[in-house]
C-alpha cells in the first residue's frame, strides 16, 4: 500500500495507523496524528484502517513562540 507520511511517499504493509507508527519506528506518547486532514486521536489509532493513497501527518512537540 502506498501512503504519504509527513509528505514523503511511503510503501507500507500496515493495516492500521498504530501498525504504521510501529513499522516506521515512531514511538512515545507525545505524538499527534491526522489522516487526510482529519485528527485521529491516540485511542483510535489501533482501530483506524488505512487505505491506499492516504496522507498521514505525524506531529510531535517542538519549540515555539
Amino acid at each position: 500500500m502506498k501512503l504519504i507520511v509527513n509528505g514523503e511517499a511511503t510503501e507500507s504493509r500496515a493495516t492500521s495507523l498504530s501498525e504504521l507508527l510501529n513499522e516506521l519506528g515512531f514511538e512515545g506518547d507525545w505524538l499527534a496524528t491526522a489522516v487526510d486532514s482529519e485528527l485521529v486521536v491516540e485511542q483510535d489509532r489501533a482501530a483506524f484502517c488505512l487505505k491506499d493513497g492516504q496522507r498521514i501527518e505525524i506531529l510531535s512537540p517542538m519549540q515555539g513562540g
Binding site: 509527513n6 515512531f26 514511538e27 505525524i58 510531535s60 517542538m62 515555539g64 513562540g65
Partner: peptide, 19 residues
C-alpha cells in the same frame, strides 16, 4: 508556548527530537 512539527523516526541514539 510550544509548537508542533513533523516528527522523525527515532534516531540511532534511540531518541527523537520531539521526545
Amino acid at each position: 508556548t510550544v509548537s508542533l512539527r513533523r516528527e522523525l523516526p527515532k534516531g540511532t541514539d534511540g531518541q527523537s527530537s520531539g521526545g
